[in-house]
Write a protein that binds this DNA or RNA. Structure first.
Length: 581
RNA sequence: GCGCCCGUAGCUCAGCUGGAUAGAGCACGAGACUUCUAAUCUUGAGGCCACAGGUUCGAAUCCUGUCGGGCGCGCCA
């Protein structure tokens, strides 16, 4: 992004230039691939500020040994004014120490770039479509949807920050049997609204109270017109209105979490437009769909199993375990048959696709990946497509599991949880674990205001910076980069950590792992709190040292930039950076 | 039976797509508080990275198998 490349990017360029020079001098063959070359902070800070594995990775291609190659690289790097020392260590690591001035310049870059510090051009403006949530429009959002929603949303922000154009998409499953069930459930509420005694909600229908107002609205709209009418007359209009009402509710629930999709794509519209049929024809032409028998499921063969001939997609050709039906025996589309066409549609509007799914759908990943490979791979390169699975969240209250049962309607809604613990807590907590690991969500722990709670810890860091700046302002001290040379080693350590933000962003975006931002923020907060605590015993290490204005202003400048960084990181996670707590 | 995910300190988890002596918090042990910035701080101990092989300069990380936990497996969505 920047006209001001950040420190890590700059050193990567320097190293690249050195390697190019070595190629030109004949030490390495031309166009030696350098993909595996990294520039990163060494694990042990005593080794230096930056380390590169270049010599070890490239030694084989240079037909020499790592240490010899390292010698050549070091010779050139040592000439750089930003490098104060370059040493070969161990099997061929190159450890660099970076000039103080270069770190201080990085601190100025944070100030200069502000909210843009950490942005990357990595995505090169490529469009990524990220589909997340896509909960069935049959009721309010519950906690089962929450993690995917937050992870997907944070990932979308992250990819945007990393230079992609992002489409946030929600696939509305408004065409299957479940929405018919919804329509029937709503019909019961409709009769109820007209004063009929409906008794218990029949087994198999949705019992939730949230359908009561929908029934009332229908009664208002249609009067008693459909009271005794056959289902065929009211099913379609009831379904339409019920789905619309559910979507409105879902949007409101998502808004509570600060989530707003760019696009809601309707499965029913997709089908009405004939997209699945087009896909089928296209696939049949290439013999990727054929009429065949489905094998009985392995393991537990059901008694009522009857082999039928169905149109099957050859997903086995692309790594699936079984060919998959795209239509049911009554001719209507299976979920997969429509989903296949849907993904093709998404692929036409994007350079890459990402789906965020709950782990309970893991079993269908192979078939949809097969479908995308088949449909986008035919004419050139397949569109890159990843399915990220988020694992289950177990809700706990004081260590005891919270029971949820769909049948009895006692599920914990997302709205309830957000109301109880707040948006920021929900979002941050969902991002403090890698998505593919199961997690617990304990109501007692997530609202705790102590340093054991990462949400609090990070937000408090920002609040602390703000309160320090407020206090300084009261004493007529404003942050200034006029005398940054007064900053000591402890302060410089914080700068070094802060300078990693841009590369953390890129790594997190590449890996599609927004939780890395959360962990980085926790580390950064720990550094600031640690420095703060230093001031307890050593008043000369406080941000505000009354006797020394220049030093205070330099430290305040540092504090302000740490605050800026926390804001940038929290913005990616969709968590508010509060100014006081 | 099959597929996917997970297995790292007593507990909850990181580990930067293969790097150097595997980290943090909690809990545990020992110290510190006449508020100056204690919504605590310093410090110590704690590990066969589930297990067994393999790949290579080098593995917690990649591959194979075993064990353990979770999720799923019909034309459902």
């Amino acid at each position: 992004m920047s006209d001001t490349p950040t420190l890590y990017a700059r050193f990567t360029e320097k190293l690249d230039a050195v390697l190019a020079a070595l190629e030109a001098e004949g030490h390495m063959p031309p166009d030696t691939p350098r993909r595996a070359v990294t520039v990163e902070p060494p694990r042990d800070p005593s080794h230096g500020d930056l380390a590169t594995n270049a010599a070890m990775v490239l030694a084989k291609q240079a037909k020499t040994n790592p240490r010899a190659l390292a010698g050549l690289i070091v010779e050139k790097l040592a000439a750089d004014p930003d490098v104060t020392s370059a040493e070969i260590a161990g099997p061929g690591f190159i450890n660099l120490r970076v000039a103080r001035e270069a770190w201080l310049a990085e601190l100025r870059a944070v100030a200069e770039l502000g909210a843009d510090y950490g942005k990357s051009t990595m995505g090169a403006g490529r469009t990524v479509n990220i589909e997340y949530v896509s909960a069935n429009p049959t009721g309010p959002m519950h906690m089962g949807h929450c993690r995917g929603a937050v992870v997907g949303d944070a990932l979308a922000s992250l990819l945007e920050f990393a230079g992609h154009k992002v489409i946030r998409e929600y696939y509305v499953n408004d065409a299957g049997g479940q929405v018919d069930v919804l329509a029937r459930s709503v019909h019961v509420r409709y009769r109820e609204a007209l004063g009929k005694d409906v008794g218990e909600i029949p087994e198999g229908l949705y019992p939730g109270d949230y359908l009561v107002p929908v029934g009332e609205a229908l009664a208002e709209e249609f009067g008693d017109r459909y009271l005794a009418a056959p289902e065929s007359e009211w099913l379609v209009p009831f379904r339409e209105r019920a789905v619309a009402a559910m979507l409105e509710m879902i949007r409101a629930d998502l808004a509570l979490l600060g989530i707003h999709h760019d696009l809601f794509s309707s499965e029913a519209e997709l089908q009405a437009a004939g997209k699945p049929a087009e896909a089928e024809a296209w696939l049949r032409e290439r013999d990727l769909v054929y009429d065949g028998m489905l094998e009985a499921p392995k393991g537990k063969t059901p008694e009522d199993w009857e082999p039928v001939e169905l149109p099957l997609f050859r997903s086995t050709k692309f790594g699936d375990d079984q060919d998959r039906p795209i239509r049911k025996s009554d001719g209507s589309w299976t979920y997969f048959g429509a989903d296949l066409a849907y993904h093709y549609q998404k692929a036409q509007g994007a350079d890459a696709l990402v789906d965020i799914w709950g782990a309970d759908h893991a079993g269908t990943v192979k078939r949809i990946k097969a479908a995308v490979a088949a449909m986008t791979g035919a004419d050139g390169d397949a569109v890159p497509f990843e399915v990220k699975l988020v694992q289950m969240v177990q809700l706990l209250r004081d260590g005891q599991p919270v029971k949820m049962s769909k049948r009895s309607g006692t599920f914990v809604t997302l709205a309830d949880v957000v109301r109880e613990v707040g948006k920021d807590v929900v979002r941050f907590t969902m991002l403090t674990r890698k998505p593919e690991a199961q997690m617990d969500f304990d109501f007692a722990k997530v609202v705790e205001a102590s340093k054991d709670n990462p949400v609090f810890y990070v937000q408090y860091c920002h609040a602390r910076v703000c309160s320090t700046l407020r206090k300084a302002a009261a004493e007529d001290l404003a942050p200034s980069d006029g005398h940054l040379e007064l900053l000591g080693e402890e302060e410089l350590e914080m700068v070094k950590l802060a300078a990693q933000f841009p590369r953390i962003v890129e790594a997190a975006a590449t890996a599609r792992e927004p939780h890395r931002i959360a962990f980085f923020l926790h580390d950064l907060a720990a550094a600031l709190h640690g420095y703060w605590n230093l001031g307890n015993d050593r008043p000369d290490k406080r941000f505000i040292v009354v006797q020394d204005g220049n030093l205070s202003r330099a430290r305040l400048f540092l504090a302000a930039q740490i605050g800026q960084l926390v804001r940038n990181g929290l913005a990616l996670l969709g968590v508010e950076a509060v100014e006081e707590m």
